[in-house]
Simulated scan of single mutants.
Amino acid sequence: MNETLYQSLIHPMAPEPISWWPPAPGWWALLTLLVTVSFLLPWAVMRLKKFNIKRRGTNQALKDISADLSDQQWLSEINSLLKRLLLRRGEVAPTRLFGEQWLNYLCQGYPRPQRSHLAPLAADLYRQAPNLSDDQRRALLRELRRWLSYNHV
């Protein structure tokens, strides 16, 4: 009797092999992520290169200002460079500022500005014969590099 019952049972079959298509939703998400990254990565690298070229150009422009110029000419060159960079960035209003207003603009929205280092751009620029020491020039250039870097000019 047991044998007859055993014969009448439906024996289990092996499942069908798992198909590779269509992939699970996780694979679709991974594919979408990879395609997105493959398009965005070259764009991001290109933007970074442009930013670095612009930054190097700005720093080079600061270095190109001759140290042999008189203090008034040197300050005037730096001032002109800053205002040209701001115009290139599309900021017109700050280029019309001078004196204390210009110094206030340079110090606003900037973490821990060294106002005393930037002061020659406001006051000494308009003096008949400003007298800057080498240390003051170096401090001004160092502070301007910080300002340019922070403001992405």
Rank of each mutant, 00 (worst) to 15 (best):
V37Q: 04
N79W: 15
K63Y: 01
Y126K: 01
W21N: 02
L144V: 04
A123N: 14
T95F: 11
M1R: 14
L30T: 08
K49N: 09
R145K: 06
L34F: 14
W27E: 09
Q108I: 14
Q72V: 11
P130G: 01
T36F: 14
R96D: 10
L85C: 04
A29M: 15
K63W: 08
P15T: 12
L86I: 13
P25M: 07
Q114K: 13
M1Q: 11
M1D: 02
W27F: 00
Q128A: 08
S76Q: 15
R84P: 06
N104A: 06
R56C: 03
A123H: 13
L148E: 10
G57V: 05
N59E: 13
V153P: 04
I78Y: 06
Q136F: 03
L121E: 02
A61V: 06
E91G: 00
S70V: 09
Q60N: 07
N2F: 06
M13D: 10
C107F: 09
V153Q: 10
P15F: 12
D64T: 05
L40Q: 00
S70Y: 09
W27G: 00
G109K: 13
A67N: 15
R146N: 09
L132T: 00
D71I: 09
M1P: 12
V153W: 07
L31M: 14
A119F: 08
C107L: 13
A29P: 07
D64A: 01
W102D: 01
H152A: 00
R88D: 05
K50C: 04
D134K: 13
S38D: 06
A44I: 03
L144T: 03
P111Q: 10
L106S: 00
A24W: 15
L75H: 07
L30F: 13
P25E: 08
E77I: 06
F98G: 00
Y110R: 01
P113G: 00
D68E: 12
R47D: 02
T95D: 09
S116H: 13
R55P: 07
L125Y: 00
Q72Y: 08
H152P: 07
L125S: 05
R137I: 12
K83L: 08
K50L: 11
T95Q: 13
M1A: 06
W74F: 07
L41A: 05
L148F: 11
D71G: 08
P130W: 10
S133Y: 15
C107M: 11
N104M: 11
N2H: 05
Q128M: 13
R145P: 09
W20D: 02
D64L: 07
E100G: 07
L40M: 07
R89Y: 02
P42V: 00
Q108H: 11
S38V: 13
N52L: 14
L75E: 11
Q60W: 07
L62H: 02
S66Y: 15
K54E: 03
M13S: 04
L62I: 08
A67R: 15
N151P: 06
L140Q: 08
Y150S: 00
H11I: 12
H152E: 01
A119M: 15
Y105A: 02
I65N: 05
P94K: 10
